[in-house]
Design a protein around this nucleic acid. Sequence first.
RNA 1: GCCGGUGUAGCUCAGUUGGCCAGAGCAGCUGAUUUGUAAUCAGCUGGUCGGGGGUUCGAAUCCCUCCACCGGCUCCA
Length: 646
Amino acid sequence: MIKITFPDNSIREYESGVSGYDIARSLSNSLAKDVVAVSVNNEIWDTTRPITTDAQIKLHKFDDKEGKYTFWHSSAHLMAEALEALYPGTKFGIGPAIDNGFYYDVDPGNGAVITDADLVKIEEKMKDLAKEGLPFTRKAISKADVTKFFTQKGDEYKLELINELEDGSITLYEQGNFTDLCRGPHLPDTRAIKAIKLLNIAGAYWRGDEKRKQLTRIYGVSFPKQKMLDDHLELLEQAKARDHRKLGKELELFTFSQTVGQGLPLWLPKGTALRERLQDFLKQVQRKYGYEQVMTPHIGHKHLYETSGHYAKYGKDSFQPITTPQEGEEYLLKPMNCPHHCEIYKTKPRSYRDLPMRMAEFGTVYRYEMSGELHGLTRVRGFTQDDAHIFCRPDQLKDEFKKVIDIILYIFRILDFNDFTTQISLRNKTDHSKYIGSEENWEKAETAILEATQEKGMNTIIEYGEAAFYGPKLDFMVKDALGRSWQLGTIQVDYNLPERFELEYIGSDDQKHRPVMIHRAPFGSMERFVAVLIEHTAGKFPLWLAPEQVVVLPISEKFNEYSEKVLNFLNNCDIRSLIDLRNEKIGKKIRESELKRIPYLLIVGEKEANEGTVSVRKQSEGDQGSMTLEEFSSFIKQEVAKQIAE
RNA sequence: GCCGGUGUAGCUCAGUUGGCCAGAGCAGCUGAUUUGUAAUCAGCUGGUCGGGGGUUCGAAUCCCUCCACCGGCUCCA
């Protein structure tokens, strides 16, 4: 007998060789039916695998992370089986479960090309195979045997993977006619996979290396119940509806023109109003934190970027230099603001008493992003950073870092961004050679970030080896409507530029010292931040940000005159308002104003004109009753004040 | 940049075995209606069918090429 410990620490005895499934069945039949995997001493196992020693276990159903992982991993194998049946000779790369489903990277046999149109066919084949209820069987195998197997099959991708595995730890999984190199675990059989949807198809380089062959990646998702799949697809539809590219067009916030050039956003009046409001807000916050605004031009001499080192590193992949017609001097569209700011720092000798110096600029920069990488406002070739550079003494680093964190957290709170993740990027622990700056300074900077985030009680992921060559950093990331992750704010420590630009300050010891720089951008870029904000709010911006706050809707042309008076009043109160004087029915005016996401609609007819009131309708909530103009104005002011209160 | 897909009026889309002057709804314009909380009615205007080249008696439709967009990969100072 062996002792099995459950998550609640209760212990039960079973025969040695009992499986996760057996244990589940001993508890309840319905549990046994739903269990898809079992953690045995924190390792995920098949439910059919015999347990032969005392163990701590946890049973997983589809509703937990491990359960989904197993379910989708098995679905990937099922898809592979279908592909092998439909496209004989297909070679397989990797086929993992991901956050929202699974994919498999394949190299279809005989040069076949799989397109979107084929997905239904593959899906049908998967469903047929699933119905057969073929068991997944696990087989431990020697490296020699598994090599022989995949050599015969002619699957060079699997052979490459095997090559990197330790003999003795290799397992195969087999279901029906399909055998795959796999660590597992898997479902007991394919029958549980009831609902399947293959979503899209894409090219993916083998092992993520663009120099290697591009495989066909097929993404899919599957569920134990059709209803769950329907709900999931419904969710995807809803996400699409808040895609910033769609809303940006509908709400007339921004556009792109083929004639202007790809990746170069054109901000329309409403988008500009929104963006400027955000910028004003940030400027105001920064003023409180002792920042000073500066402005620098859109181009800079090539020497500037040679000095900074950017030209050597990125020059050949950037927009190429502009040459002056007479002297033949080369200028670059600025890809960053920091070199310019360093030159501002150098305009006069600085004392330790002057530091920290905090220089802020909404600086527009241009970067040649690869064409396939451009994406709405989140990835563009010309964008404006809410940039600032803090020049400080090494002993001020931690405090300054904390203040920047404060700004970012404050902004996120006001804008209701509660769902973000943060990542600290530090040096590669073992290889310090590729980083610039002294060991002592790095140590100081890394501890400063770690302590600062800790003291702020932040939940962070630490990634070693992700630091830039010039310093460690802290990034803030959010996901867009379709689950894609985007970096917003960033705080980076930099020892490189002060060195390259020979920045100095005179210390209290009357000696020259080198300052440290912090690069920081709470929004990241205005473009990306607005994109994420659009998706986050589904275009229903908070009142204080909305490009248009109020629309006056006369019930018929008879009340146009009174409506104009209302509009005038609102304008005088600095409430951003417009009026719909069209000869249309009120229902239509309301509908269109709602679709434009205008926060407040004021309906004005005979009653209102007589009483000097307005009938207030709040967007997506409906009729709020009537108010006098003064009441409404102070009501709006209060709501705005509440939204931007700390 | 790479793989796959898409590209028809300002917007959303129909039109593929190649064949009357290329269609609809919305928007716009004109007129009627004077309206009470998510689409009033009628008429009119509007398109080099992404650009260029080719095949054909004939191309939105087939082929080539370029461009842009979409889904990913790679990259991201």
